[in-house]
């Protein structure tokens, strides 16, 4: 017997038209299963932030429905909102307040009594390595600390659905990786996560399902693995141990010399790399490392968005 589960997020025919006539969303449908790690990607102005704004009621929708764990944000807004935690793209806490006060206050907005709010604040400030800064005015925190503070604030009422809008924008690589580990951990503990990001490597590394939005329409909504499987061609860069004066014979593969220590090769999905290595070994070319020229998701993203732009121009 199959158990029917309620999606963490269910969006149906969501539309948003601004007063100037611009249609930011043209009737999108999205379902995010409970426990999922979901990426919502799209170029700037595609409709990602509008969608997130509507989910957390900072933007008024024109039409359609949004349900959080089966609860409509219009008719059961109180319970629906309790289940959401939001980490916005821009810093939106009071810079004059201290991290501890910010978290305790936020917990109070969700009805948590002060003693429990203080416990939760300590828990999440410690988890996000901000406890030592709990009484420092927030404006004194570094950029990375401010990002972590917003994550701690979003978690203080322990929502079932966490929405992160560009959480690692402007964050250095070390901190970004530690935030990935943290997000993976809370997702493993059962929190559903929806992520928007410009770092496609981030989406590929973290998310199991993905929707790509462009010009207010969903142009792709599938599993990450399925999407990556649809990639027809990849470009690899090979680094050689010795110097090479010209591009080696690559047999059936097309390629290009980059410099005297590296070259790139285009590989179709149907082709095996074994024959390429055989060719190179026969010529005495020793490969010390290889990597994708671009992130695989990035390749797909660019091609999907380009096709979408083509369709938009066709309509115009």
């Amino acid at each position: 017997m199959t158990r029917m589960t309620v999606p963490a997020l269910s969006i149906r025919n969501l539309t948003k038209q601004y007063d100037n006539g611009f249609s930011a969303l043209k009737g999108i449908d999205i379902d995010v299963a409970e426990g999922d790690f979901f990426a919502l990607l799209g170029p700037n102005g595609a409709g990602k932030s509008t969608t997130i704004g509507i989910i957390c009621s900072l933007v008024r929708k024109t039409g359609g429905t949004v349900k959080i764990f089966g609860r409509d944000i219009d008719t059961e807004f109180s319970q629906a909102k309790k289940d959401i935690g939001v980490v916005p793209q821009e810093f939106n806490f009071n810079m004059f307040e201290k991290p501890l006060d910010i978290l305790v206050t936020q917990a109070g907005y969700y009805g948590l009594p002060r003693a429990l709010a203080a416990q939760r604040a300590e828990k999440y400030l410690r988890v996000l390595d901000l406890w030592d800064k709990r009484n420092v005015p927030s404006r004194m925190l570094s950029g990375g600390m401010k990002r972590r503070l917003m994550i701690a604030r979003a978690l203080v009422h322990e929502p079932r659905l966490l929405i992160l809008d560009e959480p690692t924008a402007g964050v250095d690589i070390e901190l970004r990786r530690s935030m990935w580990d943290f997000l993976r951990d809370i997702n493993a503990r059962g929190t559903t996560i929806i992520l928007t990001t410009h770092y496609l490597e981030e989406a590929e590394s973290l998310c199991r399902n993905i929707a790509i939005i462009d010009h207010g329409e969903i142009i792709q909504n599938t599993g990450m693995k399925l999407l990556l499987k649809s990639l027809q061609r990849e470009v690899f860069i090979f680094d050689t141990r010795g110097t090479i004066a010209a591009l080696p014979d690559l047999g059936p593969f097309a390629g290009r010399l980059i410099d005297e220590h590296s070259f790139e090769v285009e590989v179709e999905k149907s082709e095996s790399l074994n024959s390429l290595f055989t060719h190179l070994t026969a010529q005495g070319v020793e490969i010390v490392s290889m990597r994708n020229r671009a992130n695989r998701l990035e390749e797909l993203f660019v091609s999907l968005v380009a096709s979408s732009a083509g369709r938009e121009e066709g309509r115009a």
Partner: peptide, 9 residues
Amino acid sequence: SVEELLVSP
């Protein structure tokens, strides 16, 4: 920071 309130229940 008013958004803290507006997104809350």
